[in-house]
């Protein structure tokens, strides 16, 4: 990494500090540009106890997302959301936790790797998750991102074989995103069996923070998903609240109860 980075909170040190403090990490997600309240929702998530917030930069064709985040993306795009507008709004947000962008590769490619990475850093976003850019295609982006000071978080799936898992853990920065199940994002009635298996494999393979996501909605599910890992991601359930008109307070309350469950033991 090069240059002096003034904005935002670096991902991996913050997550390691949280883990070292004996806490299960809570990562939440908000779709950037969703209505007028998304920035307030982000702040409410942090106040409710999120250790990191993923900000979705919506794409027209989100193939890894289920109905809830699809709907949030469609609404945000219909309201005129675009990467520059979302990142501009984030510039004005000072939060004490890391922010990570979650988007699809075509938006990164269209802007250009270096330009996109600089835009993120300028807005205090210090990590990126690009789910349609697997290990085999992401090398150039990882280099360009790192140069600008952006940590690229890679995703591991239940079907990832051991050799790929090792490579992925070596190259992922910030944390490793463990995908709990074979499928897209979205609320599920129960936590997939595959979650604990993958979490254990990841923990055995790396010392970097391991955070498990997909299909985690309720406090009980969060506790179960975090049991074998360092933390969890909760996304669709929170977006469902916003889509149904819940507003930032409802989101903040939901995050607070997730936090309490994770801390409660």
């Amino acid at each position: 990494m090069s240059g002096i980075i003034e904005r935002g909170v670096a991902v991996e040190p913050a997550l390691r500090a949280g883990r070292d403090a004996g806490r299960k990490l809570l990562v939440t997600y908000v779709t950037g540009g969703l209505g007028s309240g998304w920035v307030d929702a982000l702040r409410a998530m942090v106040e409710g106890g999120a250790d990191l917030v993923e900000v979705g930069i919506p794409f027209s064709d989100p193939v890894m997302d289920g109905p809830t985040i699809q709907e949030a993306s469609v609404r945000a795009l219909a309201g005129g959301a675009n990467p520059v507008g979302i990142l501009d709004a984030l510039r004005r947000v000072e939060v004490p936790v890391p922010l990570v962008a979650m988007t699809y590769y075509n938006l990164v490619f269209r802007a250009g790797h270096s330009r996109f990475a600089r835009m993120l850093v300028d807005s205090g976003v210090r990590g990126a998750i690009v789910p349609d850019l697997p290990l085999d295609e992401s090398g150039e982006w990882e280099t360009d991102a790192a140069e600008a000071g952006v940590e690229t978080v890679l995703l591991a799936a239940p079907v990832t074989p051991d050799d790929r898992l090792a490579e992925l853990c070596r190259r992922s920065h910030g944390f490793i995103y463990g995908v709990n199940l074979m499928g897209v994002t979205g609320e599920r009635a129960s936590l997939a069996q595959s979650a604990a298996v993958l979490a254990k494999r990841l923990k055995a393979a790396t010392d970097k923070p391991v955070i498990m996501g997909f299909g985690v909605s309720t406090p009980d599910q969060a506790v179960a998903a975090a049991a074998e890992a360092d933390g969890v991601v909760v996304a669709s359930a929170l977006m469902r609240l916003l889509l149904d008109g819940g507003g930032p307070n409802a989101v903040g309350d939901a995050v607070a109860s997730l936090r309490a469950a994770l801390d409660g033991g």
């Binding site: 193939v63 789910p131 697997p134 085999d136 295609e137 995703l155 079907v159 995908v179």
Partner: peptide
């Protein structure tokens, strides 16, 4: 193995689909 036709092609899929 890279599935490239000049600069085009490739395999830009989520990790879950790479093994398939």
């Amino acid at each position: 193995p890279s599935g490239r036709f000049g600069r085009f092609g490739g395999r830009f899929v989520p990790e879950s689909l790479v093994p398939a």
